[in-house]
Write a protein that binds this DNA or RNA. Structure first.
Lengths: 210, 210
DNA sequence: TCTGAAACTGTAATCATTATAGATTCAGAT
DNA sequence: ATCTGAATCTATAATGATTACAGTTTCAGA
């Protein structure tokens, strides 16, 4: 029991094996982030990362089957869950799109309310094409999950193309608005478009509902 | 002059050098398509393709700097031009979105009005993740061009996030709707969404304008 | 005919990724 | 306390895409 705190506070609670595994995985992430920040993504080889984390290359790929880009993303599967949960647990009276807008605004590139370490990571991702791409891939991977939540909450079929399109378009927003000078304003503009549709003339724009 | 027809009908009209270059490029595309169709994308190496086209690997990459996926796309830069032109040259009274909807419906995965060779190519692309990805990349590369046309035609700034988002969302449609059982119906559903916005309840859907 | 650029070649790198086969370590059962 | 199988890790050697290089051939234009 006294070992628990040695390796981290919120491990899955099983044996030493799992702790060591997580330890290795974290060592890899941290080594990768450190080296990427110092020499740029393309200036670092997976061999160097493995060395820095003191594991073999084979071990590196065992921990990160998706390859080099995935090294600094430890949370791949979680993101779609946040959004789906935001839709399901939204307060009564709030529309599906409103809940998505708020949830998204609190994440990723849209807030500066982050510890400096995460901010450095975000900046690295935003400024590295390969990492931007991979980040998008992670978001899009949640399309099915999000579409299901949207369908349930709006009384449509999950295979309804409108549902799938909305899910996809929402998940594209980080990649689309994340590089703008004012990401939050950009995010709101895109959600306005999704809520109200494209007004043929700029004059027709109406105030944002809600 | 009598050599013109030997190598093709619509070469850029300069010397033999250009003709041979185009000839080589076409040999590569055709070899790649043939081998991909026969053994699957992952079942073919660039070395095999180079062999089949009777050029060295270095030459292959000189012709196709974007790599293996680009081999069967000889028209990368043209696609955004079609769409931008469709927006600019639309008949009076037709909305920007209407023109895009019609132009898109005539292309890529949305029509079967294609020669069998192109149909085989399209099926290969749709059924191969790496090629789908690359095709999307080509579409998205035209975002700036399309955004500019949309901005001009609708009296907005090209940097307006709404414009950029619309351009992006339109260009995502092939990848989004192209794999549906009825791609054309899917395309129309997505355009309806972009025109009218997301109706919180399915009941609110209005007839498609125009 | 001469000359420089363009296109091509073979060869050898670099790098990510996967396969293999053996060693070590741990969890759970005896 | 010991045994056993699975998980983890290792070194090593492929494979395959991509790039660098240095030299050759071929063409266009002076």
């Amino acid at each position: 029991m006294r070992f628990r705190l040695r390796y981290g506070v919120d491990m899955p609670t099983t044996g030493r094996r799992e702790r060591k595994k997580a330890q290795t995985r974290r060592a890899l992430s941290e080594a990768a982030l450190r080296l990427f920040c110092e020499h740029g993504y393309d200036g670092v080889t997976v061999a160097q990362i493995a060395d820095e984390a003191d594991v073999s290359i084979a071990t590196l790929f065992a921990h990160v089957p998706d390859g080099k880009e995935a090294l600094i993303f430890d949370d791949g599967a979680e993101r779609p869950v946040w959004l789906a949960a935001a839709v399901r647990d939204r307060p009564p009276g709030q529309s599906v799109l409103q809940s998505l807008r708020r949830c998204m605004a609190a994440r990723g590139p849209f807030t500066n309310d982050l510890p400096p370490e995460l901010r450095r990571k975000r900046d690295l991702i935003v400024s590295t094409p390969a990492l931007r791409e991979y980040s998008r891939k992670l978001w899009i991977a949640g399309e099915g999950t999000l579409a299901e939540a949207i369908a349930t909450e709006s009384g449509r079929a999950p295979s309804d193309m409108t549902v799938r399109a909305l899910a996809r378009y929402v998940l594209e927003i980080p990649g689309l608005a994340g590089t703008e000078p004012d990401p939050l304003a950009a995010l709101n503009a895109v959600f306005d478009l999704l809520e109200s549709g494209w007004p043929e003339s700029p004059e027709e724009v109406t105030d944002r509902p809600g």
